[in-house]
Design a binder for these strands. Structure first.
Lengths: 152, 152
DNA sequence: CCTTGACCTTAACCTAGGTTGAGGTCTTAT
DNA sequence: ATAAGACCTCAACCTAGGTTAAGGTCAAGG
C-alpha cells in the first residue's frame, strides 16, 4: 500500500493520457458499449491495462472509416479483459481489411472516372460516368435515387 | 405561350426529381451557399437548367469525401449560371483528384499495415505500426495526440 | 370559384462522434 | 484535517448533412 503503485489498473485520467484520447471520450465509448469498466469503492473507474489495446484497436478501425457501431459489433466476438486470441484478431482484421479494400476500390474508381472526365465537357455529356443516372432515370419514372450504397 | 412549356427553367420539384435529390436537400444546399436561385412572381424558386450539373458536381465531390464547405470554396471560382469553362473544370477536378489520391494513399497504407499486423500479436508489440505513438509519447510527456490530421 | 397539389418559411428533430459545463464527491499530499 | 485536484453524473451544446412537421400561399384545372 505504501508502494509506488504498480499501476496494473488505471484511473480514467491515466487511461486517457496513455491512450491519447480525452477523458470524455472514454466516458463516451463506455456509454456506447465499446469498453466496460469496473469501479473503485468510491465509484471511480478502474481500467485494466488491456483497455489501452482496445482503444488502440478502436482508433485504428475508425481511421479505416469503420463506425463505432460496427466496431462494437466486431467486438462482440472478443470479450473484454483479455487480448484477442490470434484467431480472433485474424478474423477481425480480415473483415476490416475487406471493408477497407472496398472503400479503396470505390475511391480508385471515382478517381479514374474523374481523370477520364477532365476535359470531357464536365458532366454535360449524358453518358459521363461521373454523372449518375438519376437524371436519365427521372425521364423514365420513379426508381432508386442513390447509385452508391450511401457510404461508399 | 400555349406551347407545352420549354422548361428552360425548373421548379424546385422538377429540379429535385431530375437531380435525384429531395426538395429539402435543394433548400439545404441553397442555405449553405452551394446553389443560388431566382424567384417567380409568387416567390417560388426557379432554377436554370445549369443547376442540374452543379448538383451533379456536388454529389460527385461528396462521393469523394469532400465536405460541402470545401465544395462551396471550390465553387467560388465558378460563378453560377454557366458551365465551368474547360480550364476551370480542369483545375477543380485536379484539386479534387489530389485530395482523393491522398485519402486513397492513407487507406492503402493503413491496409498494408493491417496486413502486416495480422498475426503479429495484435497491437501488443510496442512497435506495431498500427498502434499509434500516443502511448509512448505519454511516457515522454505531453504532445500532439493525433497521428493523422483528423480527416485522413 | 374553388379544390388540389406544389410551394413557401421556420423550427424542430435526427445520427455520428464527441466536448463543455454545472454541481457534487473522492483521493491524496501535506 | 484539510485543500487541491481528479473524479462523478447529467444535461446541454457542437458540426455535418440533412429530414420532418406545422401553418400558410400559389397555380392550374374543372
Amino acid at each position: 500500500m505504501g508502494e509506488t503503485r504498480p499501476r496494473s489498473v488505471l484511473s480514467v485520467g491515466e487511461a486517457a493520457r496513455r491512450a491519447g484520447v480525452a477523458v470524455s471520450t472514454l466516458h463516451f465509448y463506455e456509454a456506447k458499449g465499446l469498453i466496460s469498466v469496473s469501479r473503485s469503492g468510491g465509484n471511480q473507474r478502474r481500467y485494466p491495462r488491456e483497455v489501452l489495446r482496445r482503444i488502440a484497436v478502436i482508433r485504428v478501425a475508425q481511421r479505416a472509416g469503420i463506425s463505432l457501431a460496427e466496431i462494437r459489433e466486431a467486438f462482440r466476438a472478443i470479450p473484454e479483459g483479455r487480448a484477442p486470441s490470434h484467431a480472433e484478431w485474424e478474423r477481425l482484421s480480415a473483415d476490416w481489411r475487406a471493408m477497407l479494400q472496398q472503400r479503396i476500390d470505390g475511391l480508385l474508381q471515382l478517381r479514374d472516372q474523374l481523370d477520364s472526365c477532365i476535359g470531357c465537357g464536365c458532366l454535360s455529356l449524358p453518358d459521363c460516368p461521373l454523372r449518375n443516372p438519376a437524371d436519365r432515370m427521372a425521364q423514365e419514372g420513379a426508381g432508386p435515387r442513390l447509385l452508391q450504397p450511401k457510404g461508399q
